[in-house]
């Protein structure tokens, strides 16, 4: 199987996010960047499929040079090759723009791919848009938010999480699949893997060579504001006998907060 995995570089989930109001951007200094956690499940799934069925795992990231570090992490996990689609643009929050870049990358550079794996969303922009958009642009079937995935010949079965249950989707390959927590347990890089990853080239693909014009790359999202959530007022803290604090809490929830 020829598997493509798309990964994004994001601040880790322990990060405290600070806003730069003048530029309406997130302050990046002091943040620790990682492979978006859901993308790690996608990489792991690709590696397991390769181990079971043979083939190659290629990892692709769209972003600035700094994304090279997360690509190396994927190589260290065991991916065969990694590619950086160089896009110097700051975060636009326009999923269609990214989806166009990815769809064109697949068409021009990796037309023989059997499976396109993504994380269910990037941790950060939290858009959950790009994979399904790529599927539509390429005319492929999709299964998003997948917790179990099986491949049998040219067909795949994916179990996707829905409210109060699971949807079993059967789809022909090639297809777009997005990983949810629970799909697998991502492996750690080995020292050998890290050393091998250091020696590998990470080829750069430019937007020009993909033939993308200004119209494809224009963001259709006009940012009007970026803010941190308002601080909650200090709450009421009850201490003492559990029976009394419980009674008092219920009284407050009814009389003051009016939620019960």
């Amino acid at each position: 199987m020829n598997i493509l995995v798309f990964v994004k570089r994001v601040p880790d989930t322990e990060s405290r996010i600070r806003v730069q109001h003048e530029t309406k951007t997130i302050a990046e200094d002091g943040l620790n960047f990682v492979v978006s956690p859901y993308d790690e499940y996608a990489v792991e799934e690709a590696l397991r499929l390769r181990e079971a069925k043979g083939g190659t795992v290629r990892v692709v990231s769209v972003g600035r040079d700094e994304a090279g570090a997360v690509l190396r992490k994927c190589l260290a996990m065991g991916a065969d090759e990694a590619f950086l689609v160089k896009d110097a643009s700051p975060e636009t929050y326009d999923g269609l723009r990214t989806a166009r870049i990815i769809a064109r990358t697949v068409e021009r550079k990796f037309p023989g791919a059997d499976l396109l794996l993504f994380g269910k969303q990037s941790v950060g922009a939290d858009n959950s848009q790009v994979p399904a958009m790529v599927a539509e642009l390429l005319g492929l079937g999709q299964a998003t938010v997948v917790t179990k995935f099986e491949v049998e010949g040219a067909s795949a079965t994916a179990y996707r999480e829905i409210e109060g249950g699971t949807e079993k989707v059967v789809l022909p390959l090639p297809a777009v699949v997005t990983a949810q927590k629970g799909l697998n347990e991502p492996r750690y890089e080995t020292l050998k893997g890290i050393m091998a990853a250091k020696k590998k080239d990470v080829p750069v693909i430019t937007l020009e060579e993909l033939g993308l014009g200004p119209d494809d790359l224009a963001s259709r999202v006009e940012i009007t504001g970026l803010d941190v959530p308002p601080q909650r007022q200090a709450g009421k803290i009850l201490q003492g006998d559990p029976a009394e604090t419980s009674r008092e809490l219920v009284r407050l929830l009814r009389g003051e907060a009016k939620v019960i």
Partner: peptide, 18 residues
């Protein structure tokens, strides 16, 4: 104009669509 949480609610983004 739409407002949505980013970073799972650590920040809120407001925007219009062109």
């Amino acid at each position: 104009e739409f407002t949505r949480p980013i970073y799972a609610g650590k920040a809120f983004l407001s925007f219009t669509l062109k």
